[in-house]
Write a protein that binds this DNA or RNA. Structure first.
Lengths: 146, 146
DNA sequence: GTACGTGCAAATTGTTTGCAGCGTG
DNA sequence: CACGCTGCAAACAATTTGCACGTAC
Protein backbone atom coordinates (compact mmCIF):
# COMPACT_ATOMS: atom_id res chain seq x y z
CA UNK A 1 0.00 0.00 0.00
CA UNK A 2 2.56 2.55 1.09
CA UNK A 3 5.54 3.69 -0.96
CA UNK A 4 8.82 1.92 -0.27
CA UNK A 5 12.29 2.81 -1.50
CA UNK A 6 12.39 -0.33 -3.64
CA UNK A 7 9.04 0.29 -5.23
CA UNK A 8 9.97 3.84 -6.16
CA UNK A 9 13.29 2.71 -7.70
CA UNK A 10 11.34 0.15 -9.66
CA UNK A 11 9.06 2.90 -10.98
CA UNK A 12 12.03 4.99 -12.09
CA UNK A 13 13.42 2.05 -14.03
CA UNK A 14 10.08 1.39 -15.70
CA UNK A 15 10.07 4.97 -16.93
CA UNK A 16 13.72 4.79 -18.08
CA UNK A 17 14.94 7.22 -15.47
CA UNK A 18 18.41 6.68 -14.07
CA UNK A 19 19.06 6.15 -10.40
CA UNK A 20 21.44 8.95 -9.50
CA UNK A 21 22.76 9.76 -6.00
CA UNK A 22 20.83 13.03 -6.02
CA UNK A 23 17.55 11.30 -6.81
CA UNK A 24 18.22 8.66 -4.17
CA UNK A 25 18.89 11.32 -1.55
CA UNK A 26 15.67 13.17 -2.40
CA UNK A 27 13.58 9.99 -2.29
CA UNK A 28 15.09 9.01 1.08
CA UNK A 29 14.36 12.49 2.36
CA UNK A 30 10.69 12.08 1.49
CA UNK A 31 10.55 8.65 3.09
CA UNK A 32 11.97 10.14 6.30
CA UNK A 33 9.43 12.95 6.18
CA UNK A 34 6.30 11.12 5.07
CA UNK A 35 4.06 13.30 7.19
CA UNK A 36 5.33 16.62 5.83
CA UNK A 37 4.25 18.79 2.93
CA UNK A 38 7.62 19.96 1.66
CA UNK A 39 8.26 22.83 -0.73
CA UNK A 40 11.09 22.67 -3.26
CA UNK A 41 13.13 24.99 -1.07
CA UNK A 42 12.44 22.79 1.98
CA UNK A 43 13.66 19.73 0.09
CA UNK A 44 16.70 21.65 -1.12
CA UNK A 45 17.66 22.70 2.42
CA UNK A 46 17.17 19.19 3.80
CA UNK A 47 19.03 17.46 0.99
CA UNK A 48 21.88 19.97 1.13
CA UNK A 49 22.82 18.60 4.56
CA UNK A 50 23.48 15.18 3.00
CA UNK A 51 24.75 16.33 -0.36
CA UNK A 52 25.93 19.97 -0.24
CA UNK A 53 26.72 20.06 -3.97
CA UNK A 54 23.18 19.50 -5.16
CA UNK A 55 21.62 22.27 -7.23
CA UNK A 56 18.20 23.78 -6.73
CA UNK A 57 17.33 23.10 -10.37
CA UNK A 58 17.98 19.40 -9.82
CA UNK A 59 15.58 19.41 -6.90
CA UNK A 60 12.89 21.04 -9.06
CA UNK A 61 13.51 18.59 -11.89
CA UNK A 62 13.41 15.58 -9.58
CA UNK A 63 10.20 16.70 -7.86
CA UNK A 64 8.53 17.28 -11.23
CA UNK A 65 9.67 13.84 -12.40
CA UNK A 66 8.41 12.12 -9.24
CA UNK A 67 5.08 13.87 -9.67
CA UNK A 68 4.92 12.75 -13.31
CA UNK A 69 5.35 9.08 -12.44
CA UNK A 70 2.81 9.36 -9.65
CA UNK A 71 5.08 9.04 -6.61
CA UNK A 72 4.50 12.58 -5.39
CA UNK A 73 1.49 14.82 -5.54
CA UNK A 74 1.78 18.55 -6.16
CA UNK A 75 -0.18 20.49 -3.59
CA UNK A 76 -1.05 24.13 -3.80
CA UNK A 77 -1.99 25.83 -0.55
CA UNK A 78 -2.18 29.26 -2.13
CA UNK A 79 1.10 30.47 -0.66
CA UNK A 80 2.62 31.19 -4.05
CA UNK A 81 4.70 28.03 -3.97
CA UNK A 82 3.99 24.36 -4.49
CA UNK A 83 4.38 21.64 -1.90
CA UNK A 84 4.90 17.94 -2.43
CA UNK A 85 3.71 14.85 -0.58
CA UNK A 86 3.42 11.14 -1.26
CA UNK A 87 0.49 10.48 -3.54
CA UNK A 88 -0.74 7.40 -1.72
CA UNK A 89 -4.18 7.55 -0.20
CA UNK A 90 -4.81 10.91 -1.79
CA UNK A 91 -8.46 10.07 -2.08
CA UNK A 92 -8.85 9.72 1.62
CA UNK A 93 -7.35 12.71 3.28
CA UNK A 94 -7.99 16.40 3.03
CA UNK A 95 -6.23 19.48 4.26
CA UNK A 96 -7.07 21.87 7.05
CA UNK A 97 -5.31 25.18 6.46
CA UNK A 98 -5.28 27.61 9.37
CA UNK A 99 -5.68 31.15 8.08
CA UNK A 100 -4.01 32.51 11.22
CA UNK A 101 -0.85 30.45 11.67
CA UNK A 102 -0.73 28.87 8.21
CA UNK A 103 -0.36 25.39 9.64
CA UNK A 104 -1.57 22.60 7.37
CA UNK A 105 -2.91 19.39 8.89
CA UNK A 106 -4.86 16.46 7.54
CA UNK A 107 -8.19 14.75 8.10
CA UNK A 108 -9.15 11.31 6.98
CA UNK A 109 -12.81 12.04 6.52
CA UNK A 110 -14.08 11.47 3.01
CA UNK A 111 -17.65 11.66 1.90
CA UNK A 112 -16.91 12.65 -1.64
CA UNK A 113 -17.59 9.34 -3.34
CA UNK A 114 -21.27 10.13 -3.58
CA UNK A 115 -20.51 13.54 -5.03
CA UNK A 116 -18.09 12.07 -7.56
CA UNK A 117 -20.61 9.50 -8.74
CA UNK A 118 -23.18 12.23 -9.25
CA UNK A 119 -20.77 14.49 -11.14
CA UNK A 120 -19.61 11.69 -13.42
CA UNK A 121 -23.20 10.87 -14.21
CA UNK A 122 -24.57 14.38 -14.64
CA UNK A 123 -21.62 16.17 -16.22
CA UNK A 124 -19.97 13.34 -18.11
CA UNK A 125 -16.72 14.41 -16.44
CA UNK A 126 -14.40 11.51 -15.61
CA UNK A 127 -12.80 12.21 -12.27
CA UNK A 128 -9.19 11.16 -11.76
CA UNK A 129 -8.47 12.90 -8.51
CA UNK A 130 -9.77 15.52 -6.13
CA UNK A 131 -8.38 18.01 -3.69
CA UNK A 132 -10.31 19.44 -0.79
CA UNK A 133 -9.10 22.27 1.38
CA UNK A 134 -10.83 23.65 4.42
CA UNK A 135 -9.79 27.12 5.54
CA UNK A 136 -10.36 28.12 9.14
CA UNK A 137 -8.83 28.53 12.57
CA UNK A 138 -7.02 25.58 14.09
CA UNK A 139 -7.53 24.49 17.71
CA UNK A 140 -4.19 25.92 18.79
CA UNK A 141 -4.92 29.39 17.44
CA UNK A 142 -8.38 29.35 18.96
CA UNK A 143 -6.85 28.56 22.34
CA UNK A 144 -4.27 31.34 21.93
CA UNK A 145 -6.98 33.83 21.01
CA UNK A 146 -8.71 33.63 24.40
CA UNK B 1 -28.25 37.74 -3.65
CA UNK B 2 -26.02 38.42 -6.63
CA UNK B 3 -23.51 41.23 -6.87
CA UNK B 4 -24.71 44.40 -8.57
CA UNK B 5 -22.70 47.43 -9.61
CA UNK B 6 -24.44 49.59 -7.02
CA UNK B 7 -23.85 47.16 -4.21
CA UNK B 8 -20.15 46.89 -5.00
CA UNK B 9 -19.77 50.69 -5.13
CA UNK B 10 -21.53 50.86 -1.78
CA UNK B 11 -19.00 48.37 -0.38
CA UNK B 12 -16.07 50.44 -1.64
CA UNK B 13 -17.49 53.52 0.09
CA UNK B 14 -17.99 51.64 3.34
CA UNK B 15 -14.33 50.69 3.24
CA UNK B 16 -13.21 54.24 2.35
CA UNK B 17 -12.03 53.29 -1.10
CA UNK B 18 -12.41 55.87 -3.85
CA UNK B 19 -14.42 55.18 -6.97
CA UNK B 20 -11.94 55.71 -9.78
CA UNK B 21 -12.52 55.14 -13.51
CA UNK B 22 -10.04 52.22 -13.46
CA UNK B 23 -11.87 50.49 -10.63
CA UNK B 24 -15.22 51.07 -12.31
CA UNK B 25 -13.95 49.55 -15.54
CA UNK B 26 -12.61 46.47 -13.75
CA UNK B 27 -15.85 45.95 -11.81
CA UNK B 28 -17.92 46.28 -15.01
CA UNK B 29 -15.60 43.80 -16.68
CA UNK B 30 -16.31 41.25 -13.97
CA UNK B 31 -20.05 41.86 -14.15
CA UNK B 32 -19.92 41.22 -17.90
CA UNK B 33 -17.93 38.03 -17.32
CA UNK B 34 -19.66 36.58 -14.27
CA UNK B 35 -19.16 33.03 -15.47
CA UNK B 36 -15.42 33.31 -16.02
CA UNK B 37 -12.44 32.69 -13.79
CA UNK B 38 -10.16 35.51 -14.85
CA UNK B 39 -6.47 35.82 -14.12
CA UNK B 40 -4.89 39.22 -13.50
CA UNK B 41 -3.46 39.14 -17.02
CA UNK B 42 -6.89 38.26 -18.45
CA UNK B 43 -8.43 41.22 -16.67
CA UNK B 44 -5.61 43.47 -17.84
CA UNK B 45 -6.10 42.47 -21.48
CA UNK B 46 -9.87 42.92 -21.29
CA UNK B 47 -9.73 46.24 -19.50
CA UNK B 48 -7.03 47.58 -21.83
CA UNK B 49 -9.57 47.56 -24.66
CA UNK B 50 -11.72 50.07 -22.74
CA UNK B 51 -8.93 51.98 -21.03
CA UNK B 52 -5.59 51.46 -22.82
CA UNK B 53 -3.67 53.54 -20.26
CA UNK B 54 -4.34 51.27 -17.31
CA UNK B 55 -1.33 49.69 -15.64
CA UNK B 56 -0.93 46.05 -14.73
CA UNK B 57 -0.05 47.03 -11.17
CA UNK B 58 -3.39 48.82 -10.84
CA UNK B 59 -5.17 45.66 -11.93
CA UNK B 60 -3.32 43.63 -9.31
CA UNK B 61 -4.03 46.22 -6.62
CA UNK B 62 -7.72 46.42 -7.52
CA UNK B 63 -8.18 42.64 -7.59
CA UNK B 64 -6.48 42.33 -4.21
CA UNK B 65 -8.70 45.08 -2.83
CA UNK B 66 -11.90 43.51 -4.20
CA UNK B 67 -10.84 40.20 -2.65
CA UNK B 68 -10.20 41.94 0.68
CA UNK B 69 -13.70 43.41 0.86
CA UNK B 70 -15.24 40.11 -0.14
CA UNK B 71 -16.43 40.92 -3.65
CA UNK B 72 -14.02 38.59 -5.40
CA UNK B 73 -12.59 35.25 -4.40
CA UNK B 74 -9.01 34.27 -5.16
CA UNK B 75 -8.87 30.85 -6.77
CA UNK B 76 -5.80 28.76 -7.25
CA UNK B 77 -5.99 26.05 -9.89
CA UNK B 78 -2.34 25.15 -9.56
CA UNK B 79 -1.29 26.84 -12.78
CA UNK B 80 1.16 29.14 -11.07
CA UNK B 81 -1.21 32.08 -11.27
CA UNK B 82 -4.28 33.16 -9.36
CA UNK B 83 -7.75 33.54 -10.83
CA UNK B 84 -10.63 35.63 -9.55
CA UNK B 85 -14.37 35.13 -9.51
CA UNK B 86 -17.35 36.64 -7.70
CA UNK B 87 -17.45 35.35 -4.15
CA UNK B 88 -21.18 34.79 -3.98
CA UNK B 89 -22.36 31.27 -3.38
CA UNK B 90 -18.81 30.06 -2.79
CA UNK B 91 -20.08 27.36 -0.50
CA UNK B 92 -22.20 25.79 -3.13
CA UNK B 93 -20.12 25.30 -6.20
CA UNK B 94 -16.97 23.40 -6.91
CA UNK B 95 -14.55 23.25 -9.78
CA UNK B 96 -13.98 20.62 -12.42
CA UNK B 97 -10.52 21.04 -13.90
CA UNK B 98 -9.80 19.11 -17.08
CA UNK B 99 -6.24 17.83 -17.01
CA UNK B 100 -6.21 17.62 -20.81
CA UNK B 101 -7.56 20.95 -22.02
CA UNK B 102 -7.25 22.88 -18.77
CA UNK B 103 -10.84 24.06 -18.95
CA UNK B 104 -12.40 24.90 -15.59
CA UNK B 105 -16.14 24.48 -15.11
CA UNK B 106 -18.42 24.43 -12.11
CA UNK B 107 -20.82 22.08 -10.35
CA UNK B 108 -23.45 23.02 -7.81
CA UNK B 109 -23.31 19.79 -5.88
CA UNK B 110 -22.39 20.19 -2.24
CA UNK B 111 -22.39 17.45 0.33
CA UNK B 112 -19.69 18.94 2.48
CA UNK B 113 -21.83 20.22 5.34
CA UNK B 114 -21.77 16.82 6.99
CA UNK B 115 -18.02 16.61 6.62
CA UNK B 116 -17.56 20.12 8.04
CA UNK B 117 -19.67 19.33 11.08
CA UNK B 118 -17.62 16.23 11.76
CA UNK B 119 -14.30 18.03 11.36
CA UNK B 120 -15.33 20.88 13.65
CA UNK B 121 -16.39 18.37 16.27
CA UNK B 122 -13.47 15.97 16.03
CA UNK B 123 -10.59 18.32 15.28
CA UNK B 124 -11.72 21.49 17.02
CA UNK B 125 -10.98 23.28 13.76
CA UNK B 126 -13.39 26.14 13.01
CA UNK B 127 -14.09 26.14 9.30
CA UNK B 128 -14.52 29.47 7.54
CA UNK B 129 -14.50 28.31 3.95
CA UNK B 130 -13.68 25.39 1.74
CA UNK B 131 -12.45 24.76 -1.77
CA UNK B 132 -13.01 21.58 -3.69
CA UNK B 133 -11.37 20.75 -6.99
CA UNK B 134 -11.96 17.68 -9.08
CA UNK B 135 -9.32 16.81 -11.65
CA UNK B 136 -10.27 14.67 -14.61
CA UNK B 137 -11.22 14.60 -18.25
CA UNK B 138 -14.11 16.75 -19.40
CA UNK B 139 -16.82 15.48 -21.72
CA UNK B 140 -15.44 17.39 -24.69
CA UNK B 141 -11.97 15.90 -24.39
CA UNK B 142 -13.43 12.43 -23.93
CA UNK B 143 -15.37 12.87 -27.16
CA UNK B 144 -12.26 14.14 -28.97
CA UNK B 145 -10.25 11.18 -27.73
CA UNK B 146 -12.34 8.61 -29.56
C1' DG C 1 30.22 4.94 -25.20
C1' DT C 2 26.15 7.54 -25.19
C1' DA C 3 22.25 9.50 -23.88
C1' DC C 4 20.58 11.12 -19.72
C1' DG C 5 21.55 13.92 -15.55
C1' DT C 6 23.89 17.60 -13.21
C1' DG C 7 25.40 22.30 -11.40
C1' DC C 8 25.58 26.82 -12.44
C1' DA C 9 23.97 31.11 -14.08
C1' DA C 10 20.88 33.48 -16.75
C1' DA C 11 16.12 33.82 -18.29
C1' DT C 12 11.08 33.70 -17.47
C1' DT C 13 6.87 34.44 -15.22
C1' DG C 14 3.61 36.15 -11.89
C1' DT C 15 3.30 39.54 -8.55
C1' DT C 16 4.78 43.51 -5.52
C1' DT C 17 6.77 47.92 -4.43
C1' DG C 18 8.75 52.85 -4.64
C1' DC C 19 7.84 57.05 -6.27
C1' DA C 20 6.38 61.39 -8.51
C1' DG C 21 2.35 63.20 -10.35
C1' DC C 22 -2.88 63.04 -10.78
C1' DG C 23 -7.78 63.22 -9.47
C1' DT C 24 -11.68 61.99 -6.20
C1' DG C 25 -14.35 63.29 -2.37
C1' DC D 1 -6.73 70.67 -1.24
C1' DA D 2 -5.33 66.35 1.04
C1' DC D 3 -4.79 62.00 0.62
C1' DG D 4 -5.60 58.02 -1.85
C1' DC D 5 -4.78 56.22 -6.46
C1' DT D 6 -2.26 55.77 -10.70
C1' DG D 7 1.33 54.46 -14.26
C1' DC D 8 5.80 53.31 -14.82
C1' DA D 9 9.91 50.95 -13.90
C1' DA D 10 12.49 48.44 -10.94
C1' DA D 11 12.46 44.75 -7.47
C1' DC D 12 11.13 40.16 -6.02
C1' DA D 13 10.31 35.26 -5.60
C1' DA D 14 9.41 30.81 -7.47
C1' DT D 15 10.44 28.17 -11.16
C1' DT D 16 12.55 26.98 -15.78
C1' DT D 17 16.02 26.70 -19.22
C1' DG D 18 20.65 26.58 -21.84
C1' DC D 19 24.81 24.67 -21.73
C1' DA D 20 29.22 22.31 -20.95
C1' DC D 21 30.65 18.71 -18.13
C1' DG D 22 29.92 14.35 -15.61
C1' DT D 23 28.17 9.61 -14.84
C1' DA D 24 24.78 5.48 -14.68
C1' DC D 25 23.78 1.73 -17.39
Amino acid sequence: MSHSFEKICQLLKEHNYKLTPQRITIIEMFLENRDQHLSAEDVYDLVKQEAPDIGLATVYRTLEMLAQIGVLLKMDFGEGRLRYEFSEGVHHHHHLICVQCGNVSEVEEDLLDLMEAKIEEEEGFTIIDHQVKFFGICKKCQDNNI
